[in-house]
Design a protein around this nucleic acid. Structure first.
Length: 551
RNA sequence: GCGCCCGUAGCUCAAUCGGAUAGAGCAACAGCCUUCUAAGCUGUAGGUUACUGGUUCGAUUCCAGUCGGGCGUACCA
């Protein structure tokens, strides 16, 4: 909560006490219309029922107890059904310009979670092939969420978990082996559900180059698996690098076998009678009362665990590492399975409350009027690298993040690719480029001028409605960051940045910045421009898009 | 069938604990470039928030049901 809101909350709390009203948590809203002030509270309406009195009357009582003469507040009014509306003095917002300029790249950061640690696990694609557009939403979402958490003070560990022991890697090994065999015999059968991408041929070619035909006879798949994993991981990491995503920990499933954690977890289930054997497999008892329909297999009848068991062991490991917050990001296709994993974790007595799961819905792509989904069919994969080349990394990240994770996203490739005013990314970036242009021009008109006096910027001349509106919007940035961070919803930042750009463009059209005849006013507006530039850049950084100096 | 998610303007989507006249962009229409980037600005039009009921001073938001869409419902992950 911003200092402004803290103060208003304090004032209201005190007034409630003065009135002898019961304590109420104060929620402050930003009214939609200027005439309702800058901050409003509905506390009188909330009290109305308890006190069996009219909200308007209660509001009047509260206002009468608010001490007059607070320099922050220029007015308090009752409106509508009993809202208490606060009008904030312009000087507060003018002063906020100073804060933006002095804090610069740090404006918007807060320390409300200082000293806390968070672990964000995402991407976590198994190394069976390059990242594709189906992974894109999660990639960009996670990147932004990690940034948001850091901006509110968390120490964030970025983690990538992958199953290198299961079926999928086996399948990759078989696919590579088949391509290798096809070098000698082009009719050698390819596995029906094998990975058909060209990279598999590349891996096979590499193996052939290094080992010739010496692997033709053997049945051993280890080398094919190992080469396949290494090669595809290189591709994956290259794509992540392009997007400036860097994980601190790559956690592989195998390590949980090596340190016996999986065995221990299984024994714990058995000893607590949470599992039983049937048909040669080990089943986890699921609680019907928690909405589970049937028991789930955790060890197959061939002795191999299903993904659930290592996943449970993995989450227990993360809990044991002591993070204050643990976040997983999954697509909606995992919507049910994560619940099973958390159930297992809880059943063994671990505190799963600190685990938060972000589920995002699937993405439909659209080119022109044609829609298509990322198909699992291997001949129809749209790789992320291709998308980056088609539309650019900025537009891609913007489009993946711009909507709430829980809505089905329609990704309009034609629109994202469009290098015209239709493309919403440019609306934001253009505002930044425009400011840079103004600053360049200012340097020519006012040789030797500087905007370095951050502690005392010229703000007393701020007066026009566009200027006031703009600086009010700017001052909301820290709250927006906190709000997005707490709800893990980076799209709110984009919505917010849009309003910054909108208000800047309007300001630009109605308030000429550089005026040779009036240097004081010019300086004042240049400082506003600089403040807008900082907020835009900081917001862009959170989302991961660049801030162009020219367009 | 069952479970989870979604349904808001022609299209894609916002809407902060349940709050005031539900907002943007695109598309449509009408304007604005001898002045700091027109990738911009201004205006018009566009809505029974899928439907029906309930709770509430107040519902896009909460509850129940109906309809429609997505995902899952594996000894895949």
């Amino acid at each position: 909560m911003s200092k402004l809101k803290e103060k208003i909350t304090g004032i209201l709390t005190d007034a409630l006490k003065e009135c002898g009203y019961p304590e109420k948590e104060i929620f402050l809203d930003k009214p939609k219309e200027d005439r309702f002030g800058d901050i409003s509270s509905n506390v009188a309406m909330l009290l109305a029922k308890e006190l069996k009195s009219a909200p308007g009357k209660i509001a009047a009582e509260i206002i009468s107890k608010i001490p007059a003469g607070n320099p922050l507040i220029s007015g308090v009014e009752i409106a509508g059904a009993g809202f208490i509306n606060f009008f904030i003095n312009d000087s507060y917002y003018k002063n906020e310009i100073k804060n933006i300029l002095t804090e610069g790249d740090n404006y918007g950061k807060s320390d409300i979670n200082k000293g806390l640690t968070a672990n964000l696990e995402w991407v976590s694609a198994n190394p069976t092939g390059p990242l594709h557009t189906g992974h894109g939403r999660q990639l960009c979402l996670g990147k932004a969420v990690a940034n948001l958490l850091e901006w509110t003070g968390y120490k964030v560990t970025r983690e990538y978990y992958y199953n290198d022991a299961g079926n999928q890697m086996n399948n990759l090994a078989l696919s590579v082996k088949a391509r290798y065999m096809q070098i000698f015999d082009k009719d050698f059968p390819f596995p029906e559900d094998g990975y058909a991408g060209d990279y598999v041929k590349e891996i096979a070619g590499k193996i052939y180059k290094e080992h010739g035909d010496s692997l033709k006879a053997g049945d051993d798949l280890d080398l094919f698996r190992k080469e396949g994993e290494e090669f595809t991981f290189k591709l994956i990491k290259k794509t992540l690098d392009r997007l400036d995503i860097h994980h601190d920990i790559f956690f592989n499933e195998t390590s949980l076998y090596e340190n016996s954690e999986i065995r221990k977890t299984l024994e714990e289930f058995k000893s607590k009678d949470l599992s039983y054997e049937k048909d040669g497999a080990v089943w986890l008892r699921m609680d019907e009362n928690q909405g589970f329909q049937k028991d789930k297999v955790i060890v197959k009848n061939n002795g191999e665990p299903t993904y659930r068991l290592p996943d449970i062991a993995y989450h227990i490991d993360k809990i044991k590492r002591g993070y204050d917050l643990i976040i997983d990001i999954f697509g909606s296709d995992h919507g049910d399975t994560y619940k099973e994993v958390l159930y297992g974790v809880k059943a063994l007595g671990y505190d799963a409350d600190k685990i938060k799961v972000i589920i995002h819905q699937m993405v439909t792509f659209k080119i022109g009027n044609e829609s298509f989904k990322m198909s699992k069919r291997s001949d129809n994969v749209y790789y992320l690298d291709e998308l980056i080349e088609d539309i650019g990394a900025d537009a891609m990240q913007f489009f993946y993040v711009m909507r709430g994770a829980n809505t089905h996203l329609d990704f309009d490739i034609s629109l994202a690719k469009d290098r015209s005013e239709k493309n919403p990314v440019y609306y934001l970036q253009y505002a930044h480029a425009r400011i840079c242009g103004i600053l360049r021009n200012a340097a020519e008109v006012f040789p030797g001028f500087s905007l370095t006096d951050h502690n005392n910027p010229v703000t007393e001349l701020i007066s026009t409605p566009e200027e006031m509106r703009l600086i009010k919007v700017l001052s909301e940035f820290p709250d927006e960051v906190i709000n997005s961070s707490e709800t893990f919803e980076p799209h709110k930042i984009i919505t917010y940045l849009n309003s910054v750009a909108e208000n800047f463009h309007r300001f630009y059209h109605n308030n000429r910045v550089i005026d040779e005849q009036n240097k004081n006013l010019s300086m004042c507006r240049l400082y506003i421009c600089l403040a807008v530039k900082h907020v835009l850049r900081n917001g862009f950084d959170l989302i991961g898009i660049s801030a162009p100096e020219k367009m």
